[in-house]
Write a protein that binds this DNA or RNA. Structure first.
Length: 385
RNA sequence: GCGACUAUCGUUCAAUGGUAGGACAUCGGUUUGUGGUACCGAGAACGAGGGUUCGAUUCCCUCUAGUCGCC
């Protein structure tokens, strides 16, 4: 069931749920200045352990004083553990890595060097990054993997979560973290499409939190995420598993829907109780010339969707590359530092055709603003109740 | 006015006496904890007329248009 909105406190500021974070994988939302991101209404971003440990490397990150300092970003950041990237790498090319009990062994995409990412190393790297929210190293599997394979990955994910939690407690001691200064720690539920494995994973993780102190006296996870792929082979949202998994997450933990999704998927997930989202879609689609646009009465349609579950399209996305926009002088509103700039479809179309990076940048900003507005509408809808 | 050269998808270049190929453009599709300025697919052309030939986009002639050169 849908959860009430709440405020969470992090070292770099408060956040109101539900909220959306764009992926700044290599410490930037590709092609956008942080002021541009901020102007869209986005207040948090996701950075990536896997990419940053390879480039610029943790010696650099430590010397410059963390990823906030490197980016010059004052608001909260969440780091992903690297588990999904190794999974993605192996899925694409089995030569590039293997999962062993010790951790994830992989080859760097930057220089081909070999690395072993253990749960302990993932936590210590994320502590060095200095982020506000971190995620345990997990073991995602494709939904098409065998039941036994996924069941084994669930058990490993639980064991790795325990090792991450111990490593977190060590970091808390060494770094003198308090309840106010410590980063939030997220576990991840695996189990593929199987309800009983999702249940088993959730129980195992909750048990780990109760058994193992996080170094600050807590017996719960700050957040718990939905791991693995959340769409089926047809590209449709796996609603049953997502709803079932959301119900497994204790109210004391934030429900994080990793990697979701389209605007429609996000609203569906909010109805189920998911509170946090990150996704490449708005920036990715923007870079490929696509703009999300509200339909008429979008706000009313979202409200109806949220309360009744009946979906009426409240947006469409426009391929600005097509020649139909060559002389399209309708306005495209894009937030900038001190307000809003009006561009025309015709101009952005032109920029895309001449491969000026300003075109994708305008659309990425536009789409991020769209997502920020969507979350704002969802928050206000939930508060109205 | 004379001469040379050229004429092929929307554009720009190929090839060929027997179902004309690429690139860019056009249209469509893919992208969900970012190896994506990417990938996949479709439609689209032999300047006009005549001749040689079983058969001509290809060889020959005329015309038209363009480019270059010379007066």
């Amino acid at each position: 069931m849908q959860r009430p909105t709440r405020t969470i406190h992090t070292p770099h500021g408060d956040i109101q749920t539900p909220f959306f974070m764009p992926d700044a994988t290599r410490a930037s939302v590709r092609g956008l200045a942080r002021e541009d991101v901020r102007a869209t209404g986005i207040t948090e971003m996701v950075v990536n352990t896997y990419h940053l440990m390879l480039q610029p490397g943790m010696d650099v990150v430590r010397r410059v004083g963390g990823v906030h300092a490197l980016m010059g970003w004052e608001r909260p950041l969440l780091s992903d553990s690297g588990g999904y990237q190794v999974y993605s790498l192996i899925h694409k090319n089995a030569q590039l890595g293997t999962i062993v009990e010790e951790g994830a062994r992989f080859r760097s995409v930057v220089d081909g060097s070999q690395h072993l990412l253990t749960p302990e190393k993932s936590i210590s790297i994320q502590a060095d990054l200095g982020v506000d929210m971190m995620v345990v190293l997990d073991d995602p599997r494709p939904n098409t993997a065998s039941y036994d394979d996924i069941a084994a990955a669930v058990e490993r994910t639980i064991r790795w979560a325990a090792r991450c939690r111990r490593a977190y407690a060590t970091q808390a001691r060494v770094r003198g973290w308090t309840q106010e200064t410590r980063p939030k720690l997220f576990a991840v539920i695996q189990g593929g499409p199987y309800a009983e494995l999702r249940t088993r994973c959730a129980q195992g993780l909750v048990d780990v939190a109760q058994r193992i102190d996080d170094g600050c006296g807590n017996t719960h996870w700050d957040g718990i995420g939905f791991g693995g792929r959340h769409i089926d082979a047809q590209g449709r949202l796996m609603e049953d598993v997502l709803a079932q998994t959301a119900a497994l997450i204790p109210e004391t933990s934030l429900a994080f829907a990793l990697g979701i999704g389209t605007p429609e998927d996000i609203v569906r997930c909010v109805r189920m109780g998911w509170e946090m989202f990150d996704c490449v879609i708005p920036t990715h689609e923007g870079r490929h010339g696509r703009a999300f646009m509200w339909t008429q009465d979008a706000r009313e349609r979202i409200a109806q969707f949220l309360t009744t579950g009946t979906y009426t399209p409240f947006y469409n996305y426009v391929n600005v590359r097509t020649a139909t926009h060559r002389t399209d002088m309708r306005a495209l509103h894009v937030p900038i530092h001190n307000g809003e700039a009006t561009y025309t479809y015709a101009y952005v179309h032109h920029l895309l055709k001449v491969n000026d990076p300003l075109g994708p940048a305008i659309l990425a900003r536009h789409n991020l603003a769209f997502y920020a507005q969507l979350m704002y509408i969802l928050r206000s809808q939930i508060m109205d109740k």
